[in-house]
Design a protein around this nucleic acid. Structure first.
Length: 324
DNA sequence: AACGGACTCAACCGCATGCAA
DNA sequence: TTTGCATGCGGTTGAGTCCGT
């Protein structure tokens, strides 16, 4: 790691530090202090600039520096402080004894930022990403549609639907999160899909109470409504832009589904798609949005806006072959 | 075993800020 | 008030390492 040794136009050495240089720097600071970084290299017998010496000392050689992995607590502290302070690494570092701003910055860029993005949060605002995240239910629904259609029986399709409903339930709270909801809380409360016993339990077929209504965070949650499994508390319009009533109540259900020669998809695809599956670009003023719920027409892209726009990326390629 | 892409992190760069003359 | 120097800060770079093929 680091850089190859080189020197600048003044003949001062650049690049990685050698153990000998480290030793000289430590000795120099011990004897002369670091009141003047510019004078220090000369006093310590180093062919380095003062800036390089300061950086080496503050980021590596200072005796109270803590090395090694960040703890869970440190991770949460960084996350919380970053949500308040932004990229003020030196300020954040003052709250984490033994950690340097450079180390925190690197940890953020290599781990936490990616983790937040992966969870659907904007790493800068710590708010749910309205572009991708709010479309997740749509994406999941789309990805699962084929799977749903391939289920041999109505019961298994119902099972799939409940799975979709549960995903919807999981995604909605974050998408509906308001600024006062602490991102750290969501971070900690976000369940792991793989580990969730619901998905490994036969109870999913019997349990009609998968969607608690008491949770304050979930108060805006509006799981997908469908005619087969409809939890009593579910109110409001469907949030997934499919009218599942159509395939479920039509002859399509339970039969072998040929995706190469689909039936008339106009009835089950949202209006943003043409019958051939291409995306019909939809601007903010579009009024044609039947069946998606009233919230979708809002121009607010902030937290809580439930966008039903089809992600444009999704349809860079035709949704399905134009064979019919 | 070899290769190549992804990842990590120490170190550099340039700008901002503070302060003394 | 202006100027110049020293230091601090955040963004970026790039060589070493890891890991999958």
């Amino acid at each position: 790691m680091g850089r190859s040794p080189s020197s600048d136009e003044n003949g001062l050495k650049k690049g990685p530090w050698t153990p000998e240089e480290d030793e000289k720097l430590v000795e120099g600071i011990k004897n002369h202090g670091h009141g003047s970084w510019r004078a220090l290299p000369k006093l310590a017998g180093l062919n380095r600039c003062g800036k390089s010496c300061r950086l080496r000392w503050t980021n590596y050689l200072k005796p109270d520096i803590k090395r090694g992995n960040f703890s869970q607590e440190e991770e949460q502290t960084i996350l919380h402080l970053h949500s308040i302070l932004g990229n003020k690494w030196s300020t954040i570092a003052t709250h984490l004894p033994g950690r340097t701003d450079n180390e925190i910055k690197n940890f953020w860029n290599t781990h936490l930022k990616k983790k937040l993005i992966h969870m659907g949060f904007d790493p800068m605002t710590h708010q749910p990403r309205t572009d991708l995240f709010s479309s997740l239910p749509n994406l999941v629904a789309l990805a699962s549609l084929r799977d749903l259609m391939e289920q041999p029986s109505l019961e298994e399709q119902a099972l799939k639907l409940q799975y979709l409903q549960y995903l919807q339930y999981l995604f909605q709270p974050a998408a509906a999160a308001t600024p006062e909801i602490d991102c750290v809380y969501l971070w900690n409360s976000m369940p792991s899909l793989e580990e969730n016993p619901v998905f490994n339990s036969p109870q999913i077929m019997q349990n009609q109470s998968l969607f608690p209504i008491a949770s304050p965070i979930m108060s805006n949650s509006q799981p997908l409504q469908n005619p087969i499994i409809s939890p009593a508390h579910v109110v409001g319009p469907p949030q997934v832009p499919f009218n599942f009533q159509m395939p479920l109540s039509s002859d399509v259900v339970g039969q072998d589904f040929d995706f190469d020669n689909p039936p008339n998809f106009q009835s089950i695809l949202p209006s943003t798609c043409s019958s051939s599956g291409h995306l019909l670009l939809m601007n903010e003023n579009s009024t044609s949005n039947p069946g998606y719920g009233s919230s979708s027409s809002s121009s607010s892209h902030g937290a809580g806006a439930t966008s039903s726009y089809w992600p444009e990326l999704l349809f860079e390629e035709p949704f399905m072959d134009e064979t019919s």
